[in-house]
Design a protein around this nucleic acid. Structure first.
Lengths: 248, 248
DNA sequence: CGGCATTTTGAAAGCTGTCAAACCCTGTGG
DNA sequence: CCACAGGGTTTGACAGCTTTCAAAATGCCG
């Protein structure tokens, strides 16, 4: 309600020949189209519209009719649910290769907002559903994606249930680092383009508590920070211990 | 590790003609086999073994190879993850009609324990996968089930993130009542065969806090209780308000 | 009826949330 | 290039709620 203004979404010409890139397949191996043959890719490409949006843009609103399915190809977005009392629960951060709108319902399960400037592929939902019907292998892969989303939600739930603030932030950093780099190593930078408020709403904490947790990790030497948006993993093993235990 | 002893699982003869009942379709409309034709039901029935287990039995262990898929037909079970420090996060309670083992991974994502004496249908995982390959409509339905599980996990996550103890318990009671009776009405009994400890681990609280929350609801007249395991919805509207807000 | 586990209650400590203010960084305008 | 305004981040103090530790009460089962 009191969210940021929704800026216009710009279209990008969709004539580029790099079908895979457009569909996001070369961004991440996990995307569902890696199971498609050339014909399937052609069919899918026929549906796509490439889109760009500025940071802060609302890409979808919780409860709104789901007309399109998206695939993020660059930048970062986040999904969240609004709570009755005006607060929100951020349910996830969306990285290149991730899909949006696969909830299977006819309305959006979460609102989606661009964290940074983003580029994405848009597929009309109805056409996408027809495509799935014609390509069982794609639907099968989609089932796998839905399952891993479920696993992620469960992990997240585990975190929200019984962890201290420092444990949550440690887990968050490690989780993001793994998604960014596929590894956890000393000196790795973990870019945090989202604000502290977004992190707080993701971890079920307040901005202040998140900030204190970062300070605590910094003073303990577990991380270093030149800017609030670019912490460096200084002692990953300590972060891991913290994330698994729960005392800070 | 320090769990209850795993009692033997008994087999029940699977020759009964009521295929639907055996597969759990008449227990709940939501199960995936309601999309099957007679041939599909026959194929599915050919795979099934009926099983019974006593309360407290461990039906599956987190991380163990997933050899079978289950469908609960009577009683109650619960799924949970063990935390490194010995505590656990109960991830869900399993009611008749619900499936177990659909995580899509080759190992169990959660441990499963019978809360009451239970009866269930067992399908060998490999055969079940072949069955799905031969029945795309079933796999399609399965995708829907996975999606609703995801939605449930997200709701749960929302709850764990930012709710007071009384709000969580209220939500829990309403949620269970809806699953039991499909409605919320004054005077409805909500059986709680699980212990307070299980509820606490589900809601991300301690036993004591859960108990205090029940007492609070009772003293406020929102519920009445003849036994700890059988609360009655005395003022559902108050419970609903409590579950949505978060002050108690 | 007695024993045992579960549930409930009590008191104190710890952590997070709330309210408020200082600090830092960024981008703008002179 | 520097000063300034603004938002986001960090820090501080205190209240509230949950956890923890301990003990009493209740309910269940033999």
């Amino acid at each position: 309600m009191a969210g940021r203004a929704t800026r216009a979404v710009r279209l990008i010409d969709a004539t580029a020949p790099e079908i895979l890139r457009c569909i996001g397949c070369d961004v991440r191996d996990l995307t569902f189209c890696s199971c498609l043959d050339a014909g399937g890719l052609r069919d899918l490409h026929a549906l796509v519209t490439r889109i760009a949006a500025d940071a802060g843009t609302t890409l979808a609103e919780e409860g709104a009719p789901l007309a399109d399915v998206f695939n993020l190809t660059s930048g970062m977005a986040m999904t969240f649910k609004a709570l009755p009392d005006g607060r929100r629960q951020v349910t996830g951060f969306v990285l290149p290769g991730d899909f949006l709108g696969l909830a299977g319902t006819d309305v959006w399960a979460d609102s989606v907002e661009a964290v940074t400037d983003v580029q994405l592929c848009r597929y009309p939902e109805a056409a996408f559903a027809r495509f799935l019907a014609n390509h069982p292998e794609a639907e099968h892969r989609l089932l796998g994606i839905a399952r891993s989303l479920l696993a992620a939600a469960q992990d997240h739930r585990l975190l929200l249930g019984r962890k201290s603030a420092a444990a949550r932030v440690s887990w968050f950093l490690l989780h993001l680092a793994r998604r960014y780099h596929g590894r956890i190593e000393v000196g790795d930078v973990v870019p945090l383009p989202m604000g502290r408020h977004d992190i707080a709403d993701y971890l079920g904490l307040t901005v202040e508590t998140v900030s204190r947790a970062f300070t605590k990790l910094r003073k303990a030497g577990s991380i270093t920070m030149t800017a609030p948006s670019a912490p460096v993993l200084a002692a990953p093993e300590r972060l891991i211990a913290l994330a698994e235990d729960d005392e800070g």
